[in-house]
Each structure stands twice: as structure tokens, then as C-alpha cells.
């Protein structure tokens, strides 16, 4: 077995047993479908008035199942970023903070390979959550609406891609955790990036800013903003994960004073 194969097997077992993984998986699988269906129901109930009603207006009209699945995609695009960012803050930051990362030195499985495997396992597990989260939403949509038409399936497909892109955007936080050697500082950076994304979108630069692309593409900023997301913006966003893995692998190759 190759070193990467060994590292993937070991990291997958550790991640499968981890409390962070169990909690985040349950939250994604339960909260995303409930939020998507609940949000749409709330928008169409007529009980929300004022500023809240204006915010919910995009969900108040149109095909019910399509709206529910589009909402799920929007929520996934952000929640997967946060889930992967938190997970990598924990799995990279905590062992560096408490010295456990020192045990990864002097192994036949090189530590850059372990770092890459850790990223891939967390990312893979996150992607494996996107599919059932959308599947549960689709099942709920099928039950609560008159069925899933082509538009609904298209919304589900876009949600799937947006969830995957959002998960990939979390990968650079492994590098942040390695640089700061602190899970809390990494979570701070994650919050900072989310806030920065809001500002970039406000000034109109969202279509090129990877951290804004998935949510804008799923319609969070309206139909016009979604139409403004082109292949180049999507490719740039998709490139963030491999670049992040390359950076963290390099960091772990040079790691010292652990």
C-alpha cells in the first residue's frame, strides 16, 4: 500500500470516530433540509411582514419544489464552507496547539502525506454529506409539493455543485490552522472571511471572489447576480481546494518547532 493509501486509511478511521465529524454530519443532514423547507414555508405563510418579508420574498413565489431545492443549495454553499473550515481548524489546529502533531515526525508515512490525507478525508466526508442533504430535501420537496420537475432537478444539481464548491473553500483553513497553530484563531479567520465576503458582494466584486461565488450562483443575491457568475468564476472557486492542499502540504514539509 502506498504512503498516501495508508494515511488515507488511518485518517479516515480517526475522522469517522471523531465527535466533530459526528456532530457536523448530523447538523448538516438535519438542519439543511429543515431550513430549506421551513424557510420556504415561512415565506409562503404570509405571517412574516416588514423587512423580514422583503428578505423572504424570493422564496414566496415560483414552483415550490424548485424554491426548496434552491434554498437548500444556498444554505449548503455557506454551511459546507463553515463545516469544513471548523473541521480543519480542529484537526490541524488542535494537534499543533497541544503538541500531538509532534508524533507525526519521523514516520515512514511522511507528514506532508498525512496532512494531504487529512484534508482529503475531511473534504470527502463533507462531499458525502452534500448528496444526502439534498436527497432528504428532495424527498421532503416531493412530499410537500406536486412533484419534482426539470427545474427542480436543475436547482438540485446546482445546489450539489455549490455545496461541493463551498466545501472546497474550507480547505485553505487547514493552512491557516497550521500557520497560527490555533483552532480558535482559525475559526476567527473563518468568520473574518465570511464578513469580508459580505463586503466584497456589497461593492459588486462577488462574481470573481471565490468565497462569494457559490452562494451567488445559487441565487442568494438574486437572479441577476446568479446570471453574472461565469465559468471563469466557477473554475477559480474550484481551484481553491487543490491550491489549499498544495499549500498545507508544503507547510507540513517545512514544519519545525513542534
Amino acid at each position: 500500500m502506498t504512503a498516501l493509501g495508508t494515511a488515507l486509511r488511518v485518517e479516515a478511521l480517526a475522522w469517522r470516530r471523531s465527535t466533530v465529524q459526528r456532530l457536523s454530519t448530523a447538523l448538516v443532514l438535519v438542519l439543511v433540509p429543515l431550513a430549506a423547507v421551513g424557510l420556504t414555508a415561512l415565506a409562503r405563510s404570509g405571517t412574516v411582514v416588514g423587512a423580514g418579508a422583503a428578505k423572504l420574498e424570493p422564496y414566496a413565489t415560483g414552483d415550490l419544489a424548485t424554491t426548496q431545492l434552491a434554498a437548500a443549495g444556498q444554505i449548503l454553499s455557506v454551511s459546507m464552507l463553515i463545516a469544513v473550515g471548523f473541521a480543519l481548524a480542529a484537526t490541524f489546529g488542535q494537534p499543533l496547539a497541544d503538541g500531538r502533531a509532534g508524533a507525526c515526525f519521523g514516520l515512514a508515512t511522511p507528514r506532508p502525506t498525512i496532512a494531504a490525507a487529512r484534508c482529503l478525508v475531511v473534504l470527502g466526508r463533507a462531499l458525502a454529506c452534500v448528496v444526502p442533504a439534498l436527497g432528504i430535501t428532495a424527498a421532503l420537496a416531493a412530499v410537500t409539493s406536486s412533484g419534482l420537475g426539470p427545474e427542480a432537478w436543475a436547482a438540485a444539481g446546482r445546489g450539489l455543485a455549490a455545496g461541493m464548491l463551498g466545501a472546497g473553500l474550507g480547505v485553505p483553513f487547514a493552512a491557516v490552522a497550521t500557520a497560527t497553530r490555533s483552532p480558535l484563531a482559525t475559526v476567527g479567520a473563518l468568520i473574518g472571511v465570511v464578513a469580508l465576503t459580505q463586503m466584497v458582494v456589497l461593492v459588486g466584486g462577488g462574481s470573481w471572489f471565490p468565497y462569494a461565488v457559490p452562494s451567488l450562483w445559487t441565487g442568494m443575491g438574486g437572479a441577476e447576480a446568479a446570471a453574472g457568475i461565469g465559468p471563469a468564476g466557477l473554475l477559480l472557486t474550484a481551484a481553491v481546494a487543490p491550491v489549499g492542499i498544495a499549500v498545507v502540504t508544503r507547510q507540513w514539509h517545512r514544519l519545525t518547532d513542534v
Binding site: 480517526a14 471523531s18 465527535t19 494537534p95 497541544d98 503538541g99 509532534g102 508524533a103 514516520l107
Partner: peptide, 8 residues
């Protein structure tokens, strides 16, 4: 710290 994961 040793090469040990508390969850395993």
C-alpha cells in the same frame, strides 16, 4: 504527546 488518537 504520543501517536495516539483519543477517539480510537
Amino acid at each position: 504527546a504520543a501517536l495516539v488518537s483519543g477517539d480510537l
